[in-house]
Design a protein around this nucleic acid. Sequence first.
DNA 1: TTGTTTTCTTATCTTTTGTTAACGTTTTAG
DNA 2: CTAAAACGTTAACAAAAGATAAGAAAACAA
Lengths: 201, 201
Amino acid sequence: MDTSTALQIFRENLKKYVDFNEAEWILFSQHLSFAKLKKKHYFAEADKVCNKVGFIVKGSVRYFQFKDGEDITGYFSFENEFTSSYKSYLMGTPSHVYIQALEDTLLITFTRKDMDEMLNDPMLAYKMERFGRLIAEQYLCCYEDRVTSFVTQSPEERYLQLLSTGREILQRMPQHYIANYLGITPVSLSRIRKRILETVR
Amino acid sequence: MDTSTALQIFRENLKKYVDFNEAEWILFSQHLSFAKLKKKHYFAEADKVCNKVGFIVKGSVRYFQFKDGEDITGYFSFENEFTSSYKSYLMGTPSHVYIQALEDTLLITFTRKDMDEMLNDPMLAYKMERFGRLIAEQYLCCYEDRVTSFVTQSPEERYLQLLSTGREILQRMPQHYIANYLGITPVSLSRIRKRILETVR
DNA sequence: TTGTTTTCTTATCTTTTGTTAACGTTTTAG
DNA sequence: CTAAAACGTTAACAAAAGATAAGAAAACAA
């Protein structure tokens, strides 16, 4: 995919948040970069500050942490979604997660420095504040649901809910990543699936 | 506490996010209301849209859902923190949670309508966008940690972490609420506590 | 292709958690 | 002050989940 197509896709997706006029878009797009991540390469790494945000034009990533000698997958992002170790990006603190490309992935990125410059540019400041607000609010809503599911639902209920809403994750991710995402072990998820099948039958 | 003291406290706390000049503050404060919640009364209720945000000047609230005939506590907010069924407020959808005063509580509130008016007021728009962004980003960071703790930690580890960071919750909340917050039953938390005591000894 | 890795299931055993109920203590409300 | 409700612990049992290992199938790479 060429960069101008990618930019066009990005701009189209941004309209959910802010609608830049031509002059603003020129200023904004000057702060954008492209990144090609080969499969299994990292967008962010644990113990390093993740100083950028990426928009996935093509591909997908998984978020994982390393604990007791194995990696635990906490989340995924797909095409037309943003990706970042958000807290690290916002606070400038080391990331706890690795963000890894699950396939060859094309991203449009901007750094924290870019964002700060835009927030301080009178021509862009207002729209960037708005952009930042709407993005953060959208992620907030997702997180709210996720936390709620851990507090009020059993692993089995969480899986059943994912079955009814999480098409993309279920289709594109191996099951042991999904198990991690649900907060259980792969073995346990396999048993839950068996239990559900037996109940249906 | 009188209202002008409350407003002063609020303004002081807001400085972490935005610093209003006098003219802006006058405009902004015109959109604020006060709410006194008696103990056990509700700031938000399930199946109703929560169309406001509250800043807790004095008191505390807990968030809970009703499931299978009992309430499950998911979160708490204390003095100088904001409270809202955030997703409901942002999206205008029915809340899933009840927000209940744990003691007589004084709040400063603004409605979604107030916020929209301010976001559309050229005199305030920029600072309100910024305010909204910074609030959302701060909550995002909290949620990120919370989700991570469910994915990567055992209930016991979550409790130990709360012991090391969650002074206020531990001191002010009954244990069965804390158990819910950690995603386990009160009986299980009691056992975990016993296990920890035996390990220390 | 061929061999290796990854993925998923299954089995066994251990640990933890959930459920229910009982009990004593503390707090609350009238 | 008194009765009722709420709270925390403990016990007993059932259910679920974790740990580990083995085996089959699928995906992957040389």
